[in-house]
């Protein structure tokens, strides 16, 4: 298990390889479907004009994401009597839905790590090379367990997207994950996909 502190520099990113177990400590931002679409349309492709507090949120995100980590997560959150938020359940969501956006977001904000589950495709793998960055795989469904690593919820942006889709700024300690896509063009997901496709071919050719 390798300890990694956020923000992460390029040297550390390049030293990571598929299969490495890591424990992440520092501040990360949750972002999933609505957030990725919004970031790309508003700030990268600029097909939609900024509205409301978008510009202020953008300035904050630029700082948080530079060398930072995005977590594909839609948490279960409680609010205590002092108005403070707590993460009760916070496992990863399926990452492939962000495939159209992820590489652009990584490059635009200099995002060093993306945490999710299920892996991502060729475009993101190329984004990992260019940024450079890595994809960290967390255990899907292990929501209570992973929420234990969230020490503090610093704040939330775009809560109007709904609790699961908002951008939550969280401080984690020793968040466990495995590198499954690295900055050297390797993807565990591509390997497993190809190997399983070959087994499938063999099984399809077997008589019933």
């Amino acid at each position: 298990m390798r300890e990694i502190t956020i923000p992460i520099d390029d040297e550390v990113i390049r030293s990571l390889h598929v299969g490495d177990s890591v424990a992440l400590t520092g501040i990360m931002v949750t972002a999933r479907d609505a957030a990725h679409k919004w970031m790309v349309e508003t700030f990268i492709k600029k097909t939609r004009p900024p509205q409301g507090e978008d510009e202020q949120v953008y300035e904050a995100l630029k700082k948080l994401l530079n060398g930072g980590v995005i977590y594909h997560c839609g948490p279960v959150v409680s609010k205590d009597e002092n108005g403070e938020y707590h993460f009760l359940a916070a496992g990863p969501t399926t990452s492939i839905r962000e495939e159209p956006y992820q590489a652009d977001v990584m490059k635009h904000f200099n995002v060093k790590g993306v945490i999710g589950k299920g892996g991502m495709g060729a475009k993101t793998l190329q984004g990992c090379r260019e940024t450079p960055g890595v994809y960290f795989h967390a255990v899907g469904g292990a929501a209570t367990f992973l929420a234990q690593t969230v020490e503090k919820v610093h704040g939330v942006y775009k809560l109007e997207f709904g609790v699961p889709e908002a951008l939550w700024v969280i401080e984690v300690k020793e968040f466990p994950a495995v590198v499954t896509m690295d900055a050297h063009g390797q993807s565990q997901h591509a390997i497993v996909d190809a190997a399983s496709r070959q087994v499938l071919e063999e099984l399809l050719n077997k008589p019933y």
Binding site: A89, A90, G91, G141, A143
Partner: peptide, 12 residues
């Protein structure tokens, strides 16, 4: 842990 803490097994 989820059983002990009475929190959702999965956030989804």
């Amino acid at each position: 842990l989820s059983r002990q803490k009475s929190t959702p097994i999965c956030q989804d």
